[in-house]
Design a protein around this nucleic acid. Structure first.
Lengths: 153, 153
DNA sequence: TCTTGACCTCAAGTCGACTTCAAGTGGCAC
DNA sequence: GTGCCACTTGAAGTCGACTTGAGGTCAAGA
């Protein structure tokens, strides 16, 4: 398959050209050459972009993802990193689950005001202590999140 | 109970004084008055801060949270909003779960390179299509995420 | 009374991941 | 040969939630 120009890569990957240039600048992807000024990409860049998307979905920062590519450009995914990320996701999931259950309850709770509902108040307590305190120690953790916001534009 | 000054509120709530001033400025909380220059807060501000923390944990923006307080300052939590947020969380959870399972598998996968592992490649596909495409239509959604990052400082 | 220092205000800075903009270049159809 | 315009560049802007800094005020203790 012949090389792709930036617009084709953008179309096939769903990643805007501006983002592709940004990724190149960050060293996440590389053009195989130029035709005039225009970047030419090897089709394998699509796979790499999928890998990047995966990393982002798992909550990795672009810098973290960059460090997962060896100097030769081939992915060098540390299995321990994967396991750690999985564990981290697991913690996030649990937190979100209790949040969801609490919200669900509050939505149907018969108490006149949410403040009078014990379940809601318990939820409040969880949130109050979970938030700035619960995970503060675990620095640089549970980034597994912005991803979701990012997806929805 | 007597009024609290900003430092006391910060200590009891775990929210930095700078953030409390920021919240006040945004209209999320209000001081009952001043002693000299110094803000005095009613102890009930702690409950309100818990409510704010809850909203943040559920992925609401500060503006969204602000709109949940009626003009009289009492919470006016729309049950439908709660249910919607719960549903949104549910979708996020499912996404994170498949991500976690995929990572978990990749971490122990016997294939020489992750690229040779069918499961990993499937994961890659999910990520590639989930990310910029999967949720794009659902604008303004699944903000239920940054929260986790934010918690971990 | 004087000093201290906690608190004040307002403006600007930070972080991450991009997007947007203005100005320039050159491949390609005609 | 000429013009179009897709692509290029580097710099600057954006968004949300705060934080930080400079310079100022004043309540309270010595």
């Amino acid at each position: 398959m012949r090389d792709l120009d930036i617009t084709e890569v953008a179309q096939r990957s769903g990643v805007p050209a501006s983002a592709l240039r940004f990724y190149e600048q960050k060293g996440l992807i590389a053009a195989v050459g130029r035709r005039g000024l225009h970047r030419q990409f090897d089709p394998s860049v699509l796979e790499r972009l999928a890998l990047i998307a995966l990393g982002r979905s798992a909550g990795l920062s672009l810098d973290e993802i960059a460090s997962m590519f060896a100097a030769d450009g081939r992915p060098r995914v540390d299995r321990k990193v994967l396991a750690d990320k999985a564990d981290e996701l697991d913690r996030s999931i649990r937190k979100l689950q209790s949040m969801r259950d609490g919200l669900r309850h509050a939505a149907v709770c018969p108490a006149r005001s949410h403040m009078e509902c014990p379940t809601f108040r318990r939820l409040l307590n969880i949130a109050a202590h979970t938030d700035r305190k619960g995970t503060k120690k675990s620095s640089k953790k549970s980034s597994a999140a912005r991803s979701l916001k990012r997806k929805s534009k």
